[in-house]
């Protein structure tokens, strides 16, 4: 038995005694994939998401997968993620000063796709914009929570402590992106957790798992070998409402000025 292996087993045993997370990790060890296992260290990750608007086809699989994976109430007004369709009409050459007003829709949060309502000849441009919690590094929602029931985890994920939330809804008011709702079953606030139960097991988020075009990419900014660095390098990216200075970690490529 090599020193490394013996050391590894000793470490693993220690972790097993110490944390519940490590007991889950044991499954990986048994499967012969110990490299994926040694516990989950919140201090070694900094999760982010990359969304390529040019790739989104508005199929809504991500919205549906999120509802299923996270047991989100079925109604659209309880949405952890949703897809918006923007339609920006053409500029009127006779009135170039008039800024074209975008039209936006999101039927059932985009969960079942988008029926075509802008047939050829309508003019203008249309595109889809997937939305989710931006997992801000300077979250307004965390700032206003009076009791510390919502917080930025050390790995950059904004989470909710459902057993501690008083249900005052101040965070819902403070979120500039409309990403929070009150779960009618628990009367506490709920939001995207970036599929925390998945990513801490080495899986990707449900929305990224099912996205057929790779429009959604999930990555670890603390891991220098994570492909997200290449994506951020290869594209000009923007965050939603940059004037809010929330430190958003959902980066959009191909974001139009009309999007809010």
């Amino acid at each position: 038995m090599s020193v490394d292996r013996r050391q590894f087993l000793a470490d693993t045993t220690k972790l097993l005694l110490l944390t519940g997370a490590a007991s889950r990790a044991w499954a990986f060890v048994e499967q012969g994939r110990p490299q994926d296992a040694p516990g989950y260290d919140v201090h070694r990750h900094w999760w982010a998401m990359f969304i390529d608007i040019e790739k989104c086809i508005g199929c809504g699989l991500c919205v549906d997968a999120c509802k299923v994976e996270n047991d989100v109430p079925p109604e659209a007004h309880y949405s952890r993620t949703w897809v918006e369709r923007y339609h920006v009409p053409d500029r009127d050459p006779l009135d170039p000063l008039a800024e074209p007003q975008p039209r936006v829709d999101s039927p059932d949060g985009g969960r079942h796709g988008f029926p075509e309502i802008y047939p050829p000849g309508t003019g203008g441009k249309s595109f889809f914009v997937p939305k989710l919690c931006n997992h801000c590094a300077h979250s307004p929602c965390v700032q206003v929570c009076p009791v510390g029931a919502t917080f930025e985890s050390p790995d950059g994920v904004v989470l909710v402590d459902k057993d501690y939330c008083v249900g005052c809804r101040y965070c819902v008011q403070a979120c500039p992106y409309g990403c929070r709702y009150i779960d009618p079953r628990t009367q506490t606030v709920d939001k995207c957790t970036l599929c925390y139960h998945r990513i801490t097991r080495g899986l990707t988020t449900a929305c990224c798992e099912v996205c057929p075009t790779g429009a959604r990419q999930f990555g670890d900014l603390k891991n220098p070998r994570d492909p997200i660095h290449d994506l951020l390098r290869a594209h000009k990216v923007q965050v939603l409402k940059p004037q809010m200075a929330t430190g958003s970690k959902v980066y959009y490529a191909g974001l139009d000025a009309a999007v809010r």
Partner: peptide, 10 residues
């Protein structure tokens, strides 16, 4: 609360 958020089964 971090652990509580990990509990759900995928």
């Amino acid at each position: 609360a971090i652990g509580a958020n990990q509990e759900r089964e995928p």
